Amino acid sequence: MRKHAVKYENKMKADADGDDYVDPEDGTITLRDLAEEAAEEAAGDGTRIQHRYYATQLGDVGDTPIGQIKRRHLQRWVNSLTEGRPWADGKPLGETTARNVGVWVCGLMKRAKKDRRIKTNPAEDLVLPDPIVEVLPSDIPTVDQVHKLMTVARSGGWATVSATDKSGRPATRRKKTLRNPDFARLIGFMASTGMRPSEIAGLRWQDISDDMTRLTVTVQATRDGKGTKPPKTKAGVRTIPLCLEVRDILVEQREHGKAGPAGTVFGTRRGARHNAGSLVDLWGKFCEPAGLDHLTLYCLRHFYASMQIHAGTSPVAVSRTMGHKTSSITMQVYTHLWNNDLDLVAGAVSSLLWASDGQNALGGGADVIDFPGQTG
């Protein structure tokens, strides 16, 4: 009784002083036990079962007291979910499942901090796998739309902005957008390489081969644009082939464009490095004048993938150039584009199985068809 009374007294004193009181004993509960508590408190059987399944994916970090868990411990665990789980013979989880498990642990740690079991939440800045969302046809711009965006960025256009009239009532007015040839080249470059906005913002001349036939993605810009960092996954480090038109873009950018610091290919008007956010802001300035404000900058990445798929590039090759961890991710994201090949499947079956000899087999008495590599 005395121990509980002292604990309560300390908590009340901390509340009065505006401090976050944490009893040292509360931090000794393991993450796995915390998960079991959450399962017991679940309202329904389905949620309880889900909690307990997620708890089986905790690995060694599950046996660590929550007061001793650091962000690096959780990040290492999250990475192992998709790269290979030591507790499951090295088998990885799918991206979506891994993300769900990670979100669940973030929720557990957030609740632990709210309940004053830990002072800080080590899961606050955890990098989780990206959710896999199928790209729809409406998310992919046409060739004409890409060209139109480049034209508007190069020559400028009109945008509608919010304003007020003389009486103070809301109104709208037209505003001329500044021409930005650098961004026009960047649009063409992104549509031709499928690079992520942060990767283009961090692209350096040293990452491009001397003959400009390929580039290697090795860094991406940080969120504040003040520096660079490695890609989020190993698959993000990749080589992308460059067509002749992209080489022309690069030559023009080198001769007339604004470079960023440390040899960055695409810089701001003031010579600073872009970040993903600044590129998204620029994109918005030219979408409305082009009549394409339903499109996002990321659509150019989808455009590149769709062009590859329509050209007959294999899922493995598309996955490599896009920087996806596995080709299964590529298939999930762009599944509807490969579904367009269903007629080709029927044609292949018709030409192989139901060739002239195969048709005779329907009537009986036909010879057995020998396929290449068949051994009986």
Rank of each mutant, 00 (worst) to 15 (best):
I249K: 03
L242R: 12
T239H: 11
D211K: 07
T218I: 09
V265G: 04
T213N: 14
S278N: 13
T228Y: 00
T213F: 06
V217C: 12
S198W: 04
G263W: 01
Q220C: 15
R247C: 05
I249G: 03
F266M: 08
I240K: 13
L244G: 05
C243V: 14
D210K: 11
E255F: 00
T218E: 13
T268S: 10
R214I: 07
P197M: 02
T216L: 10
S209N: 15
V246W: 00
V219S: 03
G284R: 15
E245N: 14
W205T: 03
K234C: 02
I200D: 05
G236C: 11
C243T: 09
C243F: 09
V217K: 02
E252S: 10
G284A: 10
S198E: 11
K285Q: 14
I249L: 15
I200Q: 08
K226E: 09
G202C: 08
C287D: 04
H256Y: 15
Q206L: 10
D248E: 15
S209K: 13
A276W: 04
E199R: 12
E245K: 15
L244A: 13
T222G: 06
S209D: 15
L203V: 10
R254N: 10
K234H: 11
T239S: 13
D211Q: 10
I249M: 14
M212K: 02
Q206T: 14
D211H: 08
C287W: 01
T268C: 06
D248W: 03
C287L: 12
D281Y: 00
A272Y: 00
E199W: 09
R238Q: 06
I208H: 06
A235C: 07
D211G: 09
I208G: 14
G271R: 08
T213D: 13
G277K: 12
S209H: 13
A262R: 10
T264V: 07
V237L: 05
P261V: 01
T228E: 00
V265K: 02
R254G: 09
L282P: 02
A272H: 05
D281F: 00
R238E: 05
K234M: 09
V219L: 09
L282Y: 03
D224H: 13
L203F: 10
T193W: 07
R196S: 09
D248Y: 03
I200K: 03
P241M: 14
M212W: 06
T228H: 00
A235V: 07
V280H: 08
W283L: 11
F266Y: 05
R254W: 05
I208F: 07
A276Q: 13
D224Y: 12
K234Y: 08
D211S: 12
K232N: 08
D211Y: 03
G194A: 12
G260F: 02
A276T: 11
V251A: 15
D210L: 13
M195N: 05
G267T: 03
E255M: 04
W205F: 07
T218K: 07
D207Y: 00
K229L: 03
V219Q: 12
D207M: 03
A201T: 01
H256V: 11
